[in-house]
Amino acid sequence: MKNIDTNLENYHYRKTNIIQILQDIQSEHNYLPEKILKYVSERLKMPLSTIYSIATFYAAFSLNPRGKHLCTVCMGTACHVRGAAAILNEFERKLDIKAGETTGDMNYSLETVNCLGCCAIGPIVVYDGKYMGEFKLKDVAAVLKEKE
């Protein structure tokens, strides 16, 4: 909780900064742990329901822990017309989870993003922070194998 206090201090305990505060928590923990949200609610004197409302509204936040590896498929229009949906399907099939879920062994999380703004080189997959342009269906197996 010490980290959280520093985080809150950075934002001067202002309720209006809650989105930025949650972003920092999300980037530290990869998700928003319920316990921490309750703590933030107490410290900021902000209703937990409000924080929960924000945390579920904005797509950047996740209330469930994510896996060791994060795989994000860009579903932007340019990527879509170049076959992003099939790539996502293939990931879903290979990992046996739906987009937004995490595998049971907590190894992989699969997510989608609306657009990364790299439309020219789509379809794009971001794997553990690494951008991969012109991604092909057959690359799915290769990427997952490489990380095993």
Partner: peptide, 12 residues
């Protein structure tokens, strides 16, 4: 907040 998928001039 350039949300339109397929547009990235603001980012650039």
């Amino acid at each position: 907040d350039e949300g339109d998928p397929g547009a990235y001039m603001d980012r650039s």
